[in-house]
């Protein structure tokens, strides 16, 4: 039993679940924004990165860790709201490449500003729990207190989002605003506010992700922190379907596990290649994602 637990396969699955939780969170934040406003947010990694710098910068003034995390979330809410109001709102109803280009510009500018203010030198964040694997009979099991914390946090965030959307009045208004803005407005829903709220939630989910990534991936906090993670998150969201939160989370976790095996049994360069291959094949088979129902397009 011991040798099984510490075997390569189990270690890979556990490590893959941890990465997959991160990919799932990024995918979820992309889906939240896509469903609310039909914008694929290419700055989805950069906005939370900025919020994380703002909040975690307070650590150097000896603020307690969890207070800094709270500040990160507040900053993320503010950045999300501001972005939607100022940058995204003028783009509704424009050709679909306009929001893409604007969000790429936003990505460039956020990363440049972050590097100008805080430099490109990685800043290490303290992990709230030990990142060293638990050992069983002297062998690492592929799971540390911190990675358990990551998975649990991801599950809690995903659960909270699902609960909010499925079981609350606010969630109903959020869904209604995304699906039928005109009808919702007639029924008295403040659609504009709901769209802003969608962006705020998505950026906050992103901030949680960014903090986890910066504390765990041995990279520390850098302006480009989320570029690679964003690519994996997008792949997960596209494979699962940009319209399906459950699909995004599920395919994020599956992607994490598959890629962990690829990295372990092939090599680290193959990880992104396999991910790209998965994306191409799945888009050819199901252009709108594996887990979305096909819908006729209105002409």
């Amino acid at each position: 039993m011991d040798s099984f637990l510490t075997s390569r396969v189990v270690t890979d699955i556990l490590g893959g679940l941890t990465n997959g939780a991160i990919y799932g969170l990024v995918a979820l934040s992309l889906v939240l924004v896509w469903r609310a406003t039909r914008v694929l947010n290419f700055a989805q990694g950069a906005m939370p990165m900025f919020a994380t710098y703002l909040g975690m910068g307070l650590l150097s003034y000896h603020w307690p860790y969890w207070v800094c995390v709270g500040v990160c979330l507040v900053a993320a809410f503010a950045i999300g709201a501001l972005t939607e109001r100022v940058l995204v709102r003028p783009l509704y109803g424009k050709p679909e490449i306009n929001p893409i280009v604007v969000m790429v510009g936003y990505l460039i500018i956020l990363e440049a500003f972050a590097a100008a203010i805080w430099s490109t030198t990685p800043r290490s964040l303290p992990a709230p729990f030990s990142p060293i694997d638990w050992r069983l009979a002297g062998q690492p099991v592929g799971l540390s207190p911190f990675s358990l914390f990551e998975v649990v946090t991801a599950l809690v965030v995903m659960g909270a989002i699902v609960t909010l959307f499925r079981f609350t009045r606010l969630g109903l208004q959020l869904r209604a605003s995304a699906l039928a803005p005109e009808v919702s407005r007639l029924l008295g829903v403040r659609v504009g506010r709901m769209l802003t709220l969608g962006w705020m939630l998505s950026t906050a989910v992103g901030a949680v992700t960014a903090i986890l990534v910066a504390s765990n991936f041995f990279t520390g906090l850098t302006p480009q922190l989320m570029d690679g993670i964003f690519a994996f998150g997008f792949i997960a969201a596209a494979v699962g379907g940009l319209d399906s939160p459950v699909g995004a989370v599920a395919s994020g976790i599956a992607l994490g596990v598959v890629l962990q095996f690829v990295g372990d049994f092939l090599n680290s360069n193959a990880i992104i290649l396999v991910a790209l291959g998965i994306l191409i094949v799945s888009l050819m088979v199901r252009p709108n994602g594996l887990l979305t129902r096909s819908t006729a397009r209105r002409v």
Binding site: E96, A238, N269, I271, A275, L276, L283
Partner: peptide, 25 residues
Amino acid sequence: LPATRLRGPYLAGMTLAFAVAFPAI
């Protein structure tokens, strides 16, 4: 090849993933 059927931002996202993957290639 998948671009034949793609609408919306999928092509942009896929090409972004290619750009990120290129150094690994």
